[in-house]
Simulated assay, not measured.
Amino acid sequence: MAQIEEFAARPGPLRLSVGSVVARMRALHSGWPAADGVAVFNRVYLAVTEELDRRIDRGDFPDRRAAGTLAVLFAERYLTAVDTVAGGARPPACWRPLFQHRRHPGVRPLQFALAGINAHIGHDLALAVVDTCRTLGCEPPAMEREFDRVGDILTMLEERIREDLMPGPDLLEIADPLTHLLGSWSLERARDGAWSAARLLWRLQEFPELADEFTERLDTGVGLVGRCLLTPWP
Results as ranks from 00 to 15, higher is better:
179 T>W: 05
3 Q>T: 15
34 A>K: 01
227 R>E: 13
37 G>S: 00
150 V>A: 10
91 P>D: 07
43 R>Q: 11
230 L>V: 09
165 L>H: 03
177 P>S: 02
56 I>M: 08
182 L>D: 01
196 S>L: 15
22 V>D: 11
129 V>T: 07
38 V>H: 00
150 V>P: 01
149 R>W: 13
82 V>A: 12
6 E>S: 15
222 V>T: 14
67 A>G: 07
111 Q>P: 10
203 R>D: 10
131 D>H: 11
99 F>C: 13
91 P>M: 03
231 T>F: 08
87 G>C: 14
181 L>Q: 07
204 L>H: 05
1 M>E: 04
164 D>W: 08
54 R>K: 10
102 R>W: 08
151 G>P: 06
166 M>G: 01
180 H>C: 05
163 E>K: 03
133 C>S: 08
183 G>H: 00
141 P>G: 14
182 L>K: 04
77 R>P: 13
115 A>T: 15
7 F>G: 00
191 R>M: 15
217 R>T: 10
214 F>V: 14
113 A>E: 11
162 R>K: 15
146 E>F: 02
83 D>N: 14
226 G>N: 10
70 L>I: 00
96 R>Y: 06
157 L>N: 10
186 S>I: 06
109 P>Q: 02
198 A>I: 08
20 S>R: 14
160 R>S: 10
197 A>C: 06
38 V>M: 05
110 L>K: 04
56 I>S: 06
1 M>K: 08
147 F>G: 10
47 A>P: 02
190 A>M: 05
234 P>M: 08
191 R>E: 14
203 R>C: 08
20 S>G: 01
171 L>P: 00
20 S>H: 11
165 L>E: 10
41 F>E: 03
130 V>W: 03
29 H>D: 13
201 L>S: 04
89 A>W: 13
167 P>S: 14
30 S>R: 06
145 R>K: 11
162 R>G: 11
192 D>H: 01
43 R>P: 04
79 L>F: 00
198 A>T: 07
200 L>G: 06
224 L>C: 12
2 A>W: 10
35 A>D: 08
75 A>R: 04
179 T>A: 01
189 R>Y: 07
60 D>L: 09
94 C>A: 15
122 G>A: 11
75 A>T: 07
31 G>D: 07
19 G>P: 05
5 E>H: 05
